[in-house]
Design a protein around this nucleic acid. Structure first.
Lengths: 157, 157
DNA sequence: ACGCAAATGATAATCATTCTCATTTGCATT
DNA sequence: AATGCAAATGAGAATGATTATCATTTGCGT
């Protein structure tokens, strides 16, 4: 027998979390699911669709635990619901489709540097930051038309 | 008698909104109140505190109407609630205290330019964007300690 | 196999916000 | 100044996302 290779079990263990069925399934969904960025309800629906029987409350709990453990990142884009993605270590910003909520990623070294400089100029350190560009589905040929989006949601500046 | 000078009445009129007591009071609060950035509930509480009798639903309605009319800007920072500020025409980004939600403003031409470039590089136009830096109260000597902040709120990147 | 703390799932509760609807009010017109 | 009516208001119900509660189940060390 070859030596075991179960990164998910390891991730959970090192996070102090028991290796349970819902947790493994949620982690697997982020690692090999159809979408990198998912809300709690999307995760819930995908699990139900694949025949898994997990409660919505558990999904919320697990997502929050994973976020606190550093396995996932949480984003609060427009639309009123949190979106999660696998924490891959590499920082990046986002561009979100205002029509369907689909997310694309980008990274710009100049902006990152500038943010640090601004923080320094203002005399304090940034704990975190959020940069999100909003665009229309039509412009980015987004393949995810017709999703949910809160009606009154308006981009903040 | 000198010629009338009532910018608020004008603002409402040109927005197609009737000049009512709640609207004038809310507008006045943003123009000369203690805080440039306020949530619906903060507005509501300040009005109650100053003896005005407006309903919370009306505050929400009026804020949304003002935003749609271009009188106010709406921001969706961390903390789960929308924050409004007078639309002064000059675009700026924000730095938000993670402890109490107090907001400071800044503008950086380099970042603005860079965002346009990124949009161009990715091949589509930005409709809007949101840049927000998050810091701790302690670091910015924020005078507004002990306010509300959703416990699970986490900065998005 | 045991035992117990941790985890789960169903449901109630909470929070911000919007909707409903009966009553009131601004304002243009007599 | 009196009238009329659409627009606005306010109280409370409804909604949507998320969290808390609590009895039952399960992972895992002994």
């Amino acid at each position: 027998m070859p030596s075991a290779e179960q990164p998910n079990l390891e991730s959970l263990k090192s996070a102090g979390l028991k290796s349970t069925s819902p947790r493994l399934k949620i982690l697997a969904l982020f690692e090999s699911g159809p979408e990198r960025h998912m809300s709690a309800e999307e995760v819930y629906r995908l699990l139900l669709a694949s025949g898994e029987d997990v409660g919505l409350a558990t999904v919320y709990r697990v997502l929050t635990q994973f976020q606190q453990a550093g396995l996932l990142e949480r984003h609060n884009f427009e639309g009123g619901k949190s979106v999660f993605e696998l924490n891959q270590g590499k920082h990046h910003d986002h561009i979100v489709c205002l029509q369907c909520g689909h997310v694309e990623e980008f990274y710009d070294a100049i902006i990152e540097t500038r943010q640090q400089n601004i923080a320094a100029e203002l005399g304090f350190g940034i704990r975190d930051h959020s940069l999100c560009l909003y665009a229309d589905c039509t412009k980015i040929q987004c393949p995810h038309a017709g999703n949910t989006q809160r009606s009154t949601a308006t981009p903040s500046a």
